[in-house]
């Protein structure tokens, strides 16, 4: 697959910015957890697929562990 051109990247970014400008203030704020729900839903499907037979509660624990690891990595990136 070829690398997307700078023009295409810029165009997609302009579209995202225009969409953001058209949203209401609270909608923009609440888009964060809404997008997170979608990300979790797809990740949970993956966790279930990798671990057949586990319960939703067990899958949620695995998801929490993954997020905790990610948070730790983000914290380590902090500049002094």
């Amino acid at each position: 697959m070829s690398k997307p051109s700078r023009e295409l990247i810029d165009e997609l970014r302009r579209e995202k910015i225009e969409r953001a400008k058209q949203m209401g203030p609270i909608d923009r704020i609440l888009a964060g957890p809404d997008l997170f729900d979608y990300a979790c839903w797809t990740t949970m499907l993956g966790i279930h697929s990798q671990n057949p037979g586990i319960t939703d509660a067990q899958a949620l624990n695995i998801l929490r562990e993954r997020l905790a690891k990610r948070e730790k990595r983000e914290q380590m990136e902090i500049t002094p």
């Binding site: 953001a20 923009r28 704020i29 888009a31 964060g32 957890p33 997008l35 997170f36 997020l67």
Partner: peptide, 17 residues
């Protein structure tokens, strides 16, 4: 945090408030 920057920027997924 990130939820407040969503108000002024391009909204992105946030795992916490």
């Amino acid at each position: 945090g990130s939820m407040s920057s969503n108000l002024y920027a391009v909204p992105r997924s946030t795992k916490d408030a």
